[in-house]
Amino acid sequence: MSAPPPSLLVEDLAFAYPDGHQALFGVDLRVERGERVALLGPNGAGKTTLVLHLNGILRAGRGSVTVAGLPVEKRSLQEIRRRVGVVFQDPDDQLFMPTVGEDVAFGPRNLGLPEPEVADRVAAALAQVRMSDAADRPPHHLSFGQRRRVAVATVLAMQPEIVVLDEPSSNLDPAGRRELAEVLAELPVTLLMITHDLPYAAQLCPRSVILDGGVVVADEPTPEVLSDARLLADHRLELPYGFSPAG
């Protein structure tokens, strides 16, 4: 056999919301196993809409999504949701169980894993995000940054093929932002990261994709994207004051 199938393959994906608003107009995206890709684009570009297709929450109007060779379809949903770990923007939406440990266990238990294995996965996932001490605490007693990291642990416990993060650095203080970056940099998984934080993309993702108006308008190594002032300006992307993409 040849190389493993790409972790994520999106082909000609188009989608309109039920109210008729068309958000995606034929998106193509291929992410190889182990890659780390930043998904950039202005507000309303369709980034979150794309993410909701990756684990079958929204169903493609046209085109297809394939995760490690398995097409996203109604009958493959359970397996797709194991393979694609989505970390949503507001950790209060993601953490709904009474304690951190139970929350991280929610996914593995839905997979029907035996209890000792569930416990192993919870411990490993919490260790990966450096939150092992918080297993018995209620999520609402944690700081925002800690909750964000626990939200990452909840998907790591599923041992996903690809982790998708929707604006992971938003609302974090500088230390929380750095701590999350340290955690993400060490994760041995394929990563797709939506962000408006261009330095974060530069730090964590060698490759960047710009989505605007529901189509992919750029797909290049991150340093090249960030040093193309014209490209950035055309798509309402801005580097913070004083930041130089050359690093």
Partner: peptide, 16 residues
Amino acid sequence: LAMLSRGYTGSVPTGP
């Protein structure tokens, strides 16, 4: 949505 994304099918499994 977040629950569906982690394989929720209607019941919240608890430990033994």
